[in-house]
């Protein structure tokens, strides 16, 4: 049986693993090691068709960002959109969270994966998102 506190939660995307130790999971090509977050038919790097599911590390560096002030209706602004690179070499796109001022985002800053509830549906199920917080 799932734990009571996670029974009514779903991850925002399939590659986010919830539970006691939230982390991202990737499909890793058994031929060349390229990692993918989406459902795969073959490897875009080498053409191989074998994949294993692997854990992506939570520690990362901020490689690129933008402070978004204009977004579609319903999206709270400003927020910090970012491309981070994990210490095990995988690029991830998400928001930088936990900054009191978005302009404090700095290229090269150390960040760590974190999760939070970003919405609730009509059945009371919570959607859990991930972001990266400064270390």
């Amino acid at each position: 049986m799932p734990e009571a506190d996670s029974a009514n939660q779903v991850p925002i995307v399939g590659y986010l693993q919830l539970g006691d130790d939230p982390h991202l999971r990737a499909n890793e090509c058994t031929g060349c090691g390229a990692r993918y977050f989406d459902r795969r038919n073959a490897c875009a790097k080498c053409g191989g068709t074998g994949f294993t599911e692997t854990r992506v590390g939570g520690a990362a560096v901020l490689k690129a960002f933008s402070v978004v002030h204009n977004a579609a209706p319903g999206i709270p602004v400003p927020y910090v959109s970012a491309i981070v690179e994990t210490t095990d070499g995988t690029s991830v796109r998400s928001n930088v969270v936990g900054l009191d001022d978005p302009m404090k985002a700095e290229l090269g800053m150390q960040v760590e994966l974190t999760t939070y509830v970003c919405g609730t549906d009509d059945d009371g199920t919570e959607c859990v998102a991930f972001g990266y917080a400064p270390v």
Partner: peptide, 24 residues
Amino acid sequence: RHGSVTSVDGILGTETMPGVFAQA
């Protein structure tokens, strides 16, 4: 293909053009 349960724009980074090119 990502098994998403909602639009991720603004939650998992930006999908808007000014933002994507800002990141570039």
